[in-house]
Design a protein around this nucleic acid. Sequence first.
DNA 1: TCTGGGGTCCTAGGACCC
DNA 2: TCTGGGGTCCTAGGACCC
Length: 403
Amino acid sequence: MERQILHIDVNNAFLSWTAVEMLKEGQKIDIRTIPSVIGGDETRRAGIVLAKSMKAKQFGIVTGETIYQAKRKCPQLQVFQGKYKKYKEYSDKLYNLLLEYTDKIERYSIDECFLDMTDYLMNQKLIDKAYEIKRRVKEQLGFTVNIGISSNKLLAKMASDFKKPDMVHTLYPSEIPTKMWNLPVSELFMLGRKTVPKLQAMRIKTIGDLAKTEQIKLIKKFGKHGNLIWQYANGIDNSEVSYKQEKPKGIGNSTTLPMDISEIEKIEEVLLALTEHVAYRLRKNGMLANVVTVQLRTSDFKDFTHQGRLKVATCSTKIIYEKAKSLLEEMLKEKKRIRLVGVRVDNLVEKDEMQISLFNTEKTEKLEKLDNILDSLNKKYGYNSVTRAGKMKIHKIVKLKEE
DNA sequence: TCTGGGGTCCTAGGACCC
DNA sequence: TCTGGGGTCCTAGGACCC
């Protein structure tokens, strides 16, 4: 049976939400009406554009470029820092409003949802519902969305990407040739900066060109991904709206250092702070990790990872950190100037109390108790309040840059 | 390039076993 | 053994998304 899918996409999410919040705080100007961007902190070398206003876009500013470049394009550009806690709140508000229409909602990202409306229409037309949702979000929450309508997720998502902001678009299979095939191939979901030039070299310029290319040719060149993009170009996507809350498959934390560093002791201090955060989130999810990965980026922007499997799945900060530290040591056998440090845990499993007690030794119990105490203090006094020794030192490293 | 941080999935090659 | 092939697990790297 034909499905009825909506894709809801918040227009310039971080910027819109910041604007709404600022207005609420009594700020007179709406930053959506001036050339403005949400950006990372330049002094922390994280100065890239995360979201832009329509006015900023008119100056040719694009997401992902440096604040420096953006300012060159538009000297009067206003730059604001992200308020990520607030963003989660706005995302939740949107989700709760959408729940009034269906509980089959997939939260694809902080500012995007898929809705499967197939069973919830009651003789109403989907497009009328879409307009109602769009209007209510604007009136009740204060920001605009684009809504894409189709019979599968891919087409609904492509539709919501058409003209912005504050618009509803359909892209039914019958509309593919007129609405999608004329677009440049770079517009297709899952075609990024590496694959697009390769397609262009094959004289594939539009999504229509891709759709008409022999499937086998794409599979030979790009493997599974070749098959996927051929299907997408033809509007084929049978994936379900996955509305059940899924547990994370991995948890990571990484940071660009305020300055490149080579001393392993300093990198270890950063690694400890990152590990504390990762292990804390792991425990909050009630999960255990089997694999630890350390990521480094050198000053010349090359990325390296090393991973290792743990003997027993764990959520202990100390055990994860010890693994991470040994991985770091093998990665830094020769000296490198390090720009970014990251740690992540993968191959997660649910913490099953029975199973854990079987493996529990006195030592792991002690570690668990320590983690629990720190976690509860963090809960009480805020995440950054209580730390192991290493954490304070990070702030010192950060300070170095400022001085 | 003055180039974030959080993810997921795929691939290729090596180790190891039968 | 101057050795075949298949399966599985593991690691490092890369592509893509927001």
